[in-house]
Design a protein around this nucleic acid. Structure first.
Length: 468
DNA sequence: TGAGAGTCAATAAT
DNA sequence: ATTATTGACTCTCA
């Protein structure tokens, strides 16, 4: 166990004191991992703790949350990650036992914590629980115990064989789609879980760039063009918006904490908002390259795009049409284009991808067209078609990043926006993180993925000629 | 009705 | 085996 950074964290002290109480005993009480049992909590009145966890004093976490001082979410997650990895404790165990959340949620929370001031009361809860856990001297020990217990239980059930008494698991209401019958008539009770093909995501992202808040009509059109359910498109926009937003938060945090120094980092620059309420943004976030520096970077155009636009609202502008226009123009004109290079990837290489999923392949990326009419400045480009204004976005830098070292000399444009004050503490990350901005990592992963698929395809059939 | 916040849970990736 | 990603829910709020 390495040293504990025990750094600052003064902001926490009050909470710490508050809660730091001796937590007497505890434990046990609930255990049962059991199934979800029934219990559609009809209880409307929020009777206190949702469920899990150590019961603890009299304060119901919610109260704790309410009176909690501002916590450094980034610092907390960082410490939690350290403790978990140092002790070989998994997210699933930690999540279910300490936070009352599933593994996926924990992963997300630890990787992309939102700044305290952006969290709702509900959203702060897990952080308060984490802080509480960090304050608990026996935290690791308790979790290890849980782990042992679980393993024991697992062993028991597993080789069951004889003995075994109660256990009665199995069945319960289960759906016994037990073995037996040929897996033919798959009950549709399962719902297939939609998986959007890369092309579909690209198209949606493009649409998002033009209009982050598409009108129902536009959504309808997109759904039709991509051959997706309307609800899927709606969900996608909701999810994408909030996820993009999150990326921006972390960017802010990181930028602030390690300030300028040098890690490449965003080009886009001008972004300084942060204050609540305003997201600012400005108009088109579409590139427009200009910086003399040249190079690259474009990081903007895609993911964390800088768009946020609130469009609509305005007091006066009655014309939300812009987006529509563009979209309309993009209408799929049926005719599929010649296979081969449709959809050139941003990189410019042909990107064919994997299994778009059974059945239909909406490939049709309509061609664009359109001239456009004025409306959107620059960018034009039809939603569904790539082309036009983008530049090589990703790629470039993503490649480098992964391997430890940082890299990129990058110039230092960027002024460091201040803001961060909120978090005063810095978490300056030490060096080791292999992962810096998750964004970069993500992009790198994506690129690798693409490369990997291309290679695979190449080996399988030689055709395919690619250029770099 | 619709946006946003939190999560879940299936499934991809490591 | 874990961890990461992500479409779909569930709740609020306006």
């Amino acid at each position: 166990a390495p040293e504990s950074p025990m750094s600052s964290s003064e902001s926490v002290k009050s909470l710490t004191e508050l809660v730091q109480q001796p937590c007497p005993a505890i434990e046990t009480s609930k255990d049962g991992k059991s199934q979800e049992s029934s219990e559609p909590p009809a209880s409307e009145s929020q009777s206190t703790t949702p469920l899990p966890l150590s019961g603890h004093s009299a304060l119901s976490i919610q109260e704790l949350v309410a009176m909690s001082p501002e916590l450094d979410t980034y610092g907390i997650t960082k410490r939690v990650k350290e403790v978990l990895t140092d002790n070989n404790l998994g997210q699933r165990l930690f999540g279910e036992t300490i936070l009352g959340l599933t593994q996926g949620s924990v992963s997300d929370l630890l990787a992309r914590p939102k700044p305290w001031h952006k969290l709702s009361l509900k959203g702060r809860e897990p952080f308060v629980r984490m802080q509480l856990w960090l304050n608990d001297p026996n935290n690791v020990e308790k979790l290890m115990d849980m782990k042992r217990m679980e393993k024991k239980a697992y062993m028991k059930r597993r080789h069951s064989s004889v003995s075994d008494s109660q256990s009665c698991e199995s069945s319960c209401a289960g759906i016994d789609y037990s073995q037996g019958a040929s897996p033919q008539p798959q009950h549709q009770l399962k719902k297939p879980r939609v998986v959007l093909a890369p092309e579909e995501k690209e198209a949606l992202k493009r649409a998002y760039q033009q209009k982050p808040y598409p009108s129902p009509k536009t959504i309808e059109e997109l759904a039709t063009q991509l051959n997706l359910k309307t609800s899927t498109v709606i969900n996608w926009f909701h999810n994408y918006r909030s996820r993009i937003r999150r990326e921006l938060f972390i960017e802010e945090i990181q930028a602030g904490s390690q300030s300028q120094a040098g890690s490449s980092e965003s080009p886009s620059g001008r972004s300084g908002r942060a204050a609540h309420g305003s997201e600012g943004d400005s108009c088109d976030g579409v590139d427009a390259e200009g910086p003399p520096d040249g190079k690259a970077s474009g990081a903007e155009a895609d993911e964390p795009s800088s768009a946020a636009a609130k469009s609509q609202g305005g007091p006066g502008e009655p014309a939300p049409e812009a987006g529509e226009e563009a979209l309309r123009g993009a209408r799929p004109s049926e005719r599929a284009e010649p296979e081969s290079l449709e959809d050139t990837d941003d990189e410019g290489r042909p990107r064919r991808s994997s299994p778009p999923r059974p059945g239909d392949a909406p490939e049709t990326l309509p061609n664009s067209a359109t001239e456009g009419d004025a409306s959107t400045s620059a960018a034009s480009t039809s939603v569904l078609t790539g082309e036009s204004s983008y530049k090589s976005k990703e790629s470039s830098e993503k490649i480098s990043s992964v391997p430890s070292t940082s890299s990129t000399p990058a110039a230092g444009s960027q002024k460091t926006n201040s803001l961060q004050s909120l978090f005063g503490l810095s978490e300056a990350a030490s060096s080791r993180n292999t992962r810096d901005s998750s964004l970069r990592k993500k992009k790198a992963a994506n690129l690798n993925n693409i490369i990997h698929r291309l290679e695979k395809a190449a080996s399988r059939e030689e055709a395919v000629e690619w250029e770099f």
